[in-house]
Design a binder for these strands. Sequence first.
DNA 1: TTTAAATGCTACTTGTTTATAGTATTTAAC
DNA 2: GTTAAATACTATAAACAAGTAGCATTTAAA
Lengths: 137, 137
Amino acid sequence: MNLSKTSKYAFRILSHMAKDEKALYSAQQLHKEIDVPEKYLRRLLTDLSKHGFIKSIQGRQGGFTFNRDINQITLLEIVDAIDGLDSINECILGYESCAFSHSCPMHNIWEETKQKTIKTLTDTTLSDIHKSIVGVN
Amino acid sequence: MNLSKTSKYAFRILSHMAKDEKALYSAQQLHKEIDVPEKYLRRLLTDLSKHGFIKSIQGRQGGFTFNRDINQITLLEIVDAIDGLDSINECILGYESCAFSHSCPMHNIWEETKQKTIKTLTDTTLSDIHKSIVGVN
DNA sequence: TTTAAATGCTACTTGTTTATAGTATTTAAC
DNA sequence: GTTAAATACTATAAACAAGTAGCATTTAAA
Ligand code: FES
Ligand code: FES
């Protein structure tokens, strides 16, 4: 799997916001709390709004808040929105579309690990993240 | 895990060479067989030689052949040589050194998947690759 | 001994991702 | 209304990864 730095930033943002699901967060506040370059963070927040994960409130006293129930947002959706699903289904030898064919010499060796990764991303929602600290399973 | 395109190329090269462990392969031949840009491939082959996986034989009738027993070369060693171990131990939120600390909010959720990936890379050697096609386990 | 076929080296070019700068727009407080 | 604090947009810069070019070196065959 090839997770871009931008997707990691998205995880930072959304997992942080999930701590208090109903709160409104400003870009400046988030910048201080999760250490993502401010300008880049702003762009990413707008992007995440366009993808419908969060919504923006403009003007003074504005900011960002969730637009969907956080137990319905999976990690896979987030990666999909930023990097695309191809980044996850990638062939480990870099050949085209591992998802539909399975012809490369390392496919069998890698398949199980790949599925495990996809399963974790699919099964984990934003609401699971802070639960996990106390070991709920 | 963040596997660079170059590491994928390295996998292509070495897994292909592992089909006939004792053979001597020229860069030109490999280029035709595994579809890696020729100049880049040459550089990578030299690099893999310097890392001791293969050795080069210079001059006319030269080429590359394994320098070590292929059942002793793990996938992890290859990734380590090209991308470094950090690329594997990476924190999923992009914070520093997941390996020694484990303090980010998503660590617990990700840890098992990460370990599965590392285990596969550690346990798989070049000699396992072509065996796996007939389903040996 | 000349030539051809191979690797070795290093500098450069291209492409992609990440980051920044600057300006416009929105809206609540005053 | 004016101001201040927020997001939206777009162009550009910087950093990094991937790919190329060109020449030097090595060595076996002719
Ligand atoms: S085709 Fe290469 S890993 Fe599936
Ligand atoms: S510290 Fe973030 S995944 Fe381990």
